[in-house]
Simulated assay, not measured.
Amino acid sequence: MFEGIALEDWAASSREFLFGRHRLRYWEAGEGEPLLLIHGFPSGAWDWNYLWPALTQRYRVIACDMLGFGFSDKPRGHAYSLLEQADIQQALLDHLGVVQYHLLAHDYGDSVAQEMLARDPQGESLRSLCFLNGGLFPETHRPVLLQRLLMSPIGPLIGRRFSRERMGRTFGRIFGINTQPTEQELDAFWAMMITNNGPAVMHRLIRYMAERPVHRDRWVAAMQQTVVPLRVIDGAEDPISGMHMVERYRELIPEADTVLLRGIGHYPQVEAPELVLEHYLAFRNRVG
């Protein structure tokens, strides 16, 4: 089992950059080819903590808490957008002087990665892209009850009443039966979410679910036509975007490169980091 990084140590190692007037926290370590990690909803970049030591031994690894997430600013009343989050990722790369990079994304981060791919389908900057579990196709996305409630007219109330207990129940349903989150992991997820009063903006962040259908055809066309090497590593037991999403991916994407992790749920980088690392490194070795 991989040894993780305690959240307080993770937070202490962060740096800060400005996007407009918003302060965002980011992490950078290692040497070699730049590898950008993009986290999912509703947590933050700490999601990658189990993989971080191994990846930073091989690559220059970069990750940030996106706007509204983790230890970054969470402005009230902000119109959060997947397109803006892609702008933020590019701004971070520019801030660090990165011209060419590889990308590993999860969940909400998959949609941000799809937008970045659509902007660079010829791979002038983006050299490879690996997706973990996420809503790559709106027609296969199966949101949990919490997500549906946040999208509803009572979304602001649901966010304000969100609790550690409710979060734990939700995460328990989307992790694998035999790879359930520990209490320490749940504490860390909760700490990221409540920092800077995160529950107050969850109903605004969740609007990404309405954005996905708007951009769906452009994003899917980019995946179908790109020269950028793609791979999906997916926890098969994920009720949100598990095996059923991979089946759709295989229908739509030519020469689909997919890996199904049996018994693993929505957070493979937390549930089975050793398997994710194995299959990610094999992908990178293949693409050169």
Rank of each mutant, 00 (worst) to 15 (best):
R286M: 09
Q122D: 12
L55Q: 09
M245E: 13
M223S: 05
V144E: 03
Q114F: 02
L37G: 07
L150A: 09
M192R: 14
W219A: 07
R284K: 15
P181Y: 03
A200F: 03
A272H: 02
E33L: 05
E251N: 11
E16W: 11
D238I: 01
A105M: 03
F189Y: 15
S152Y: 11
G97S: 04
M193P: 06
Q184F: 12
V99Y: 07
D73P: 06
G97K: 00
A45M: 08
S128V: 03
L205Y: 03
P121A: 01
L36I: 02
L277S: 07
R127Q: 15
A86F: 00
Q225R: 13
M66P: 01
F2C: 05
E115C: 10
D65A: 06
W10L: 03
Y80S: 06
F171Y: 15
P181F: 01
T195Q: 12
C64L: 15
A91L: 10
R248F: 12
G288S: 13
Y249D: 02
I206M: 12
S241K: 00
R119C: 06
D107H: 02
E211R: 13
V144H: 08
M209R: 04
E185Y: 03
R250M: 11
Q89T: 05
G235R: 08
H266V: 00
E183S: 14
R207T: 10
V259P: 00
